[in-house]
């Protein structure tokens, strides 16, 4: 589904935070609705896109969108890392935020219909993948096997516990959850995601695409395993995070080599990432 609205470019649209949920330590999810009904109606995204979010009085930051383009509540999930995100964490339901966007290319959707899909996420790397996962599950019949491998340091560090419960119960969705060290009540896997990918997965390589998001160490080790399994470098997708100030391809803060993450990305194939010439 293509975004049909011209993105909000310069002046942010005001939205209201309607609900706030604690996810994991230092990460909260904020559900929001636009104040203007026509925007609420027209705001459409692609999975993998991002918005520029204004916290009034503090500043603006780029944040990836975890919700599905279809029939999903609009929300963002944000870790407290700096001055602006700290101000966001102070907000209460009813508070206003500003939104510009959506920006960026987004994950492939139409192009991967009929293929097997494997999602590999580490820690808060699940945030940008969630959008694609939910959308694919909404169109489950149009895809081959769909697999999620998700790992975190401990069970307390797993994002979207409610979605995880649902996903576990979803038919035709193979899910694996792993944590670094054993815990008493943990019934899932133990170990790093790359080990899990190595152990558990056998897929016809030529009809499989992978979506990988997580910290650099995890990312690199997972890529290694996927390549061993024969998955092509241009069938592996990830999304890059960069410092951004405009989202419009102008401020140049997110420039990597010849590409601007905000307009050419944030989604890149591993093949592209390799040639960017900078660290992940």
């Amino acid at each position: 589904m293509e975004g049909s609205l011209v993105p909000i470019v310069t002046v942010p649209e005001v939205a209201t935070v309607v609900e706030i949920r604690d996810e994991i330590d230092e990460v909260k999810t904020f559900y929001f609705n636009f104040d203007r009904p026509e925007i609420e109606q027209a705001f459409k995204i692609r999975s993998g896109q991002f918005i520029m979010c204004t916290i009034f009085g503090a500043g603006e930051f780029a944040v990836s969108l975890p919700f599905s383009p279809e029939n999903d509540r609009k929300h963002i999930s944000v870790r407290r890392v700096g001055k602006v995100t700290a101000a966001l964490h102070e907000l209460q339901p009813g508070d206003k935020i500003g939104v510009r966007g959506p920006f960026g290319n987004g994950f492939p959707f139409e192009e991967i219909k009929g293929k097997n899909i494997i999602y590999v996420a580490g820690g808060i790397g699940l945030i940008p993948l969630r959008s694609s996962i939910v959308q694919v599950l909404q169109h489950r019949a149009e895809f081959g096997r769909v697999i999620l491998v998700y790992g975190a340091r401990s069970s307390r560090d797993l994002m979207y516990k409610e979605s995880i419960r649902e996903w576990k119960a979803t038919e035709n969705f193979e899910t694996y959850f792993t944590i670094d060290r054993p815990e008493p009540d943990w019934s899932g896997e133990v170990g790093f995601v790359n080990q899990l990918v190595a152990k558990k997965l056998s897929l016809p390589a030529d009809n499989t695409v992978a979506f990988v998001c997580g910290p650099p160490v995890m990312f690199n080790s997972v890529i290694k395993e996927l390549k061993l399994k024969g998955i092509k470098e241009d069938h592996i997708y990830s999304t890059l995070e960069r410092h951004m100030k405009c989202g419009l391809g102008k401020c140049q803060h997110c420039a990597i080599g010849r590409t601007l993450v905000c307009v050419d990305g944030p989604v890149y194939t591993y093949k592209q990432i390799k040639t960017l010439g900078e660290q992940i």
Binding site: E60, R242, Q252, H253
Partner: peptide
Amino acid sequence: CFNVEDVNRLDGATDRLRTWDSCSFEGYT
């Protein structure tokens, strides 16, 4: 290249400022 910063003014309003920046700075990226 530019930087964007929200600055709270004494009268209670906030200005979003766009100022020159340079990719030669460490904090830029």
